[in-house]
C-alpha cells in the first residue's frame, strides 16, 4: 500500500494532502486540534464509564445491569407509589369535606374532578358511555332528567348504594308488570299508553279512547307518576312529559314498558370504590351541567 499512497505535499500551504481528488480539488490533511482529539477520547471514556455504571448492553436473556443497580422500572414504580401517597392525603381531605366545601375549594374541586374523570372512565363508561350520555336503558347523566334526583347528595347516594342493587340502602321501586302479571288487559294498556302519548307530544293510535286511558292512568299510574305525569323521584318514577325517555320515546315503547317493564339495575359501589373516589364521582357527574 505504501507505494500507491505516495505522500503529496500541497505547494501553496505546505500541508500534506489526503490523496483524494474531486473535480481537481484536493483535500488537505490538516491535523485535528489537540483539544478536539482529547475531547473525543474523553467522550469514549465517558461512554465506558456509563456502561459500567448504568444498564447498557443487551444479553441473550437479560442485560448488563451496571454497578449502580439503576432501573427505570423501579423509578417509575417509586414515582407511582409517591403519587398514590400524595393522592391519599388529598383524598382523605375530600372524604372529610362537605360538598359545599369541595365546590368552594379549588384544590379539592380540581382533585375531585380529575379523580372522578379517571374513575368514571374505568367504572361507569361501559354503561353510561365515555361522554356520560348513556343509551337506551342507561340514563344520560349530562341532561337534567333525573330519575332518582339530581342534587349532588342524591347523585352521591345513588352511586354509593345503587338502584335495585340488592344493597339494603339501595333505591328500590319497581314498575309493576301490568301486562305480564295480568293486572291490566291489553285493551286497557293500549288506552293508557295512548293517553300518556297524547300528553307527551307523541302521535296516538287512530280512534284511541283517551278518556278511558285517563281513568286507567288515574287508577293505576298516578300514585307514582303523579296526576300531572311529572313523575316522582322518591319512587324513581320517571317524568312522562320529558323530551327523553330511558327506554325509548314512542308509543310502542310505552306499551312495551307497561306490559313487561324493564327495571334497570345500577350496582352499589360502596366497598368496590374507596369513599374518596365515590365522592369524586358525585362531584364529577354533578359538574356535567345537568346537576341541580
Amino acid at each position: 500500500m505504501s507505494e500507491t499512497h505516495k505522500t503529496e505535499i500541497d505547494k501553496i500551504t505546505g500541508v500534506e494532502t489526503t490523496g483524494h481528488e474531486w473535480d481537481g480539488l484536493k483535500e488537505l490533511n490538516n491535523p485535528l486540534p489537540r483539544w478536539w482529539l482529547y475531547s473525543f477520547y474523553a467522550c469514549i471514556l465517558w461512554a465506558i464509564g456509563y456502561w459500567v455504571i448504568y444498564p447498557a448492553w443487551p444479553l441473550v436473556s437479560g442485560y448488563t445491569t451496571g454497578v449502580m443497580g439503576y432501573s427505570q422500572r423501579a423509578d417509575a414504580i417509586a414515582d407511582y407509589e409517591a403519587g398514590m401517597a400524595e393522592r391519599a392525603v388529598t383524598g382523605a381531605k375530600l372524604v372529610d369535606a362537605s360538598f359545599e366545601d369541595i365546590r368552594t375549594t379549588p384544590e379539592l374541586l380540581e382533585f375531585a374532578n380529575a379523580n372522578g374523570a379517571a374513575a368514571f372512565g374505568d367504572n361507569c363508561a361501559p354503561c353510561h358511555g365515555s361522554g356520560a350520555t348513556g343509551s337506551k336503558g342507561y340514563p344520560n347523566l349530562q341532561d337534567d332528567n333525573w330519575l332518582w334526583g339530581g342534587t349532588i347528595d342524591q347523585i352521591y347516594q345513588t352511586i354509593e348504594f345503587g338502584i335495585r342493587s340488592g344493597h339494603d340502602e339501595a333505591h328500590i321501586g319497581d314498575m309493576p308488570a301490568f301486562g305480564r302479571d295480568e293486572l291490566l288487559t291489553k285493551e286497557q294498556i293500549d288506552q293508557v299508553a295512548n293517553f300518556v302519548a297524547s300528553k307527551t307530544g307523541l302521535e296516538t293510535d287512530a280512534g284511541a279512547d283517551l278518556e278511558a286511558g285517563a281513568t286507567v292512568y288515574a287508577d293505576n299510574c298516578a300514585a307514582c307518576h303523579g296526576e300531572d305525569l311529572k313523575g316522582m323521584q322518591e319512587m324513581g318514577a320517571p317524568n312522562l312529559t320529558a323530551a327523553t325517555f330511558l327506554y325509548g320515546k314512542s308509543l310502542a315503547a310505552i306499551k312495551s314498558q307497561v306490559t313487561n317493564p324493564h327495571n334497570g339495575v345500577m350496582p352499589s359501589w360502596e366497598g368496590r370504590l374507596d369513599p374518596a373516589t365515590i365522592k369524586s364521582l358525585a362531584v364529577y357527574v354533578h359538574s356535567f351541567g345537568g346537576g341541580q
Binding site: S130, T133, Q142
Partner: peptide, 18 residues
C-alpha cells in the same frame, strides 16, 4: 366545544352545548 357529548337534550326539549 365539548367533543363528547356534542349536544344534550334537556327534559323540556331544549338543547344544551358545553
Amino acid at each position: 366545544h365539548d367533543r363528547n357529548p356534542i349536544y344534550v337534550i334537556q327534559t323540556d326539549g331544549s338543547i344544551r352545548n358545553g
